[in-house]
Amino acid sequence: MLAYTIRRLLMLIPVLIGMSLITFSIIHLIPGNPARVILGDQATATAVANLEEQLGLNEPFLIQYGQYMLGLLQGDLGTSIRTNTAISGDIWPYLAATFELTIFAMVFAVIVGVNAGIISAWKQNSWFDYTAMVIALIGVSMPIFWLGLMQQWVFAQELGWLPAFGRENPRNPIESITHFNLLDALIHGQLDQWWTSFKHLVLPGIALGTIPMAIIARMTRSSMLEVLRSDYIRTIEAKGSSTLSVIYRHGFKNAVIPVLTVVGLQTGTLLGGAILTETIFSWPGIGRYIYEAIGNRDYPVIQSGILVIATMFVFINLIVDLLYSYIDPRIKY
């Protein structure tokens, strides 16, 4: 297990190099002079020359890449053109906000999706099964912006139960330590702040988690159906084990691998692809950070943002792979 983990980590190196090469090339894929594109038509020749100098665009490609990699290894993601500050420092609060939202959304998606899928498979063709699967179908087909707006309209505007925007009360913000609001509130011992932050998470979290929940529910159901028909489940029933043990301990454990794959892929997607949700709910996450950078033609920020998201995606899938071999003793590498 340890040897396998180390081997998998070493295998990440070429993947990460390839990724950095691709993200680094983005700036060079801009047709014409990148500095000119960034600054716009009105810029003077001096300004363009200065920016080229600042971005190191007048060096040969390999040297530029070498310098970029050297920076990366020291944790330097470059400097934002617009704010002129280090991206590595700027990016964390956004990243933390996205993490918090993604974790909430995935916890919601997994708890609801997995249980709905399990019960649907167990009670196949029952009213529960039909209802759950229709909801899941609606869940995957519903546009997220529409769901978000409807939630805001019903739960924020009409009922007034939950806040519609942001991640905290702007008049009473949480003093940031980790930038995870729920965690920070706990560290400060402010339970009311924790509750406020939690309430802010609910609507965007559910909006973001609905599609993964629906996919997880359908995947769990089909995987469980296959497992519940297998011979070893019959053996366990023949031993006189309780239904709970048959369904969850043996059934779900055997059905979990495809579900885990989906959870991994969906988590990766949510981390990078939450722009829509973050925009609707004014959530200050990484999606919005990159989106704004695109508007400002802030290429170093775009580059770094993509690199960070891609890296997380790779690591999440690594964790999923390691979990496979932990769960199934037959998976040996």
Binding site: T235, G240, S241, N254, D328, P329
Partner: peptide, 24 residues
């Protein structure tokens, strides 16, 4: 029935290859 099953009446099956839970 669950209390009797596996205790007073037990069963073995045709397919030993697939009749044991592979994860335990």
């Amino acid at each position: 029935l669950r209390a009797i099953r596996g205790d007073q009446i037990a069963m073995i099956f045709q397919e030993p290859m697939t009749s044991l839970d592979p994860l335990f």
